[in-house]
Design a protein around this nucleic acid. Structure first.
Lengths: 160, 160
DNA sequence: TAAAACTGTACCAATTTAGTTCTATTTATC
DNA sequence: GATAAATAGAACTAAATTGGTACAGTTTTA
């Protein structure tokens, strides 16, 4: 399967959970672990990574916690995924890093691997966190077009 | 990283290699291994899987070999990937199989995982094997739009 | 000052994956 | 009909990745 790690899956759950609350509210790792039914150490680990990648803000000490650094409709799924899994690289040949592959000098499809990579990345860059917490609207919209429409063009047409 | 297995990567290389030849020509596993600089047993293994999934035809015995079962422009990258990696399932929650997840009865984002899954799947369903062996044209297209647009929805009014 | 929460590092176990090996079957050619 | 070349299929091993945990440290509020 083309797949995301479990931790990334959890990360999406955690981000979605936070996205359902007002943006200003803080969430402790403990609360999120309970709400999402995930082990606390794992939740902490994930939140740390999301923080380091600029998707969350944090406040230390008692009464501390994590919060979204932007509103959910401004956070793309691609950002969350690449925060937790590193830069998009469906295959080893799809990055700009050289020297990782023996075939490199004569590899016939290196450029094309990049194309595949980019297709996926761009499709996820247009799907926003806010889309994950509104299943109804998106489902309805897909019915119309049999295709997911980039959030940027979704938002204007959407009921607020 | 959101990633494909190495074997899938090799599979794309092998399919591309065959796509460069006339469709009627047969390719032995040995020849392909040499051409693509991959170990023969691995190549055999991959070709077998591609055969079982209906993407290749085979002829046994001396003078046997494998060939594409359709022309490259009718074979999508999504088909090749799911042949080698199983059905698309970016996360465990994105399939229709139930009972794999303890959170299932109350999982807040199961439907949304499906959405992510579908976005990726559809973007790859519109990218064809023929696109991988024509870097120039696709590159030019990307230059215009700074975006890969699925061939089918290119026509429908997504632009401007 | 104590408690609650984040921060960072390091480690282990389980799973998955890549790669190999061996045997059986089919088929064209001599 | 024998042989060589090729696919078909099953099983196994070793390595890499990943998930999960543990623990010590730092910050902040009450």
């Amino acid at each position: 399967m083309i797949r995301l790690g479990k931790l990334t899956d959890y990360g999406l759950v955690l981000m979605s959970q936070m996205a359902r609350q007002p943006q200003s509210s803080l969430h402790t790792a403990r609360d999120l672990a309970v709400q999402c039914k995930l082990p606390l150490p794992t939740v902490s680990k994930i939140l740390k990574v999301l923080l380091q990648n600029g998707l969350l803000s944090s406040h230390r000490g008692i009464k501390g916690g994590y919060g979204l650094v932007r509103e959910p409709r401004m956070i793309s799924i691609a950002e969350i995924i690449s925060a937790l899994e590193g830069p998009f690289a469906l295959t080893e040949c799809s990055t700009d890093v050289t020297g990782m592959c023996d075939l490199e000098p004569c590899c016939p499809i290196k450029d094309n691997q990049r194309i595949i990579n980019r297709v996926v990345q761009e499709s996820l860059r247009d799907l926003m966190l806010s889309d994950l917490i509104r299943p109804m609207q998106l489902a309805a919209m897909r019915g119309q077009k049999n295709n997911i429409v980039p959030a940027s063009s979704l938002i204007s047409g959407r009921v607020q």
